[in-house]
């Protein structure tokens, strides 16, 4: 049964063209990272080549280390919790037998995904306020002193991670739920025959069944290790919490774009991409080695 693959290639073509134009085409701009870039002269114009000066400049800025650390710290927490929370929630929802309830929970937790951070920024300032915010009122009922979530350097990263997970976990949950549906029911029946209760079934059937999905999403999310979320941080941070909340992207926005230092901004972008590329490669190898899983 041999079918010509021509039509299949044809169907892939639009996607390939899109990637070429919008992902590979702009890569030419990487040149800017090595230039003292003056927009009016154009990318291929008579620019001054400065070698690694842009990189050196960024490394020598007094806040670079702090910013790098904040980014890693916030992004790592987001990756870890962004992976764990949806799995747990998906397994719990899967156990709900009442169909309407199940669907409505699913929809409700998915909704925040559609709100933009500009909107949420305003809302969060209100609900997290230490004096009038509803969260602190609830904490007050159980005798906890008001916490200045957006103004304290201890709590700001926690707030970032918490609100990001709250916004996005519904989306991850759907993927895991879909994966759970794909697990062969016979496995559960066999487990039952062997005397496994629901908890044991989860442990020995559901989780192993989800392994591939978890590894896949885990590997992909590692590429985001230097993306701590520009939209979110930009809308929530303030001078008061630069110390714990200023990340690479907001930093570059201020020194690179606001001051029109496009070369510097590109240099940092390139640095981020290289680190992400290395991490994805390493984690891909690890996934293959330890989970015997290959994406490609």
């Amino acid at each position: 049964m041999k079918v010509s693959q021509g039509p299949l290639y044809l169907m892939v073509l639009p996607g390939v063209i899109l990637v070429l134009i919008f992902s590979y085409g702009p890569m030419v701009g990487i040149l800017m990272a090595f230039q003292q870039f003056i927009p009016a002269k154009g990318l291929f114009g008579d620019q001054t080549w400065v070698g690694l000066d842009n990189f050196r400049y960024v490394l020598e800025l007094p806040n670079t280390m702090r910013v790098l650390w904040n980014t890693l710290y916030i992004a790592t927490l987001k990756i870890i919790f962004g992976l764990i929370v949806p799995i747990i929630v998906a397994i719990l929802i899967n156990e709900v037998r009442h169909m309407t309830l199940k669907k409505s929970i699913q929809t409700t937790i998915y909704l925040p995904h559609f709100l933009s951070w500009v909107v949420l920024g305003g809302i969060l300032i209100d609900i997290l306020s230490p004096s009038q915010g509803i969260i602190n009122m609830i904490l007050g009922l159980v005798g906890i002193e008001p916490i200045f979530f957006l103004g304290s350097n201890t709590w700001f990263p926690v707030t970032l991670v918490g609100s990001e997970i709250w916004k996005e976990f519904g989306f991850g949950t759907i993927i895991y739920l879909a994966a759970i549906t794909g697990i062969n029911p016979e496995l559960y029946e066999a487990a039952k025959m062997d005397g496994a209760n629901r908890f044991k079934q989860t442990l020995h059937v559901t989780l192993p069944g989800l392994r591939m999905t978890i590894v896949l999403l885990g590997v992909l999310s590692l590429g985001n290790i230097l993306n701590a979320g520009f939209d979110q941080v930009f809308n929530l941070y303030s001078t008061q919490v630069y110390e714990s909340g200023d990340i690479i992207d907001t930093f570059v926005y201020r020194i690179g774009l606001l001051e029109a230092q496009y070369g510097v901004a590109t240099a940092v972008g390139l640095f981020k991409s290289v680190v992400s590329c290395i991490l994805v490669t390493v984690s891909y190898y690890l996934a293959y080695r330890f989970a015997n899983y290959r994406i490609f």
């Binding site: 007094p62 806040n63 303030s238 001078t239 008061q240 201020r254 001051e259």
Partner: peptide, 20 residues
Amino acid sequence: TQKQATLEQLQNEVFTKIIL
């Protein structure tokens, strides 16, 4: 062009902290 953003940030951070 190179340092203004950093200096402004330093200034606003210090001033805010002092006021707080």
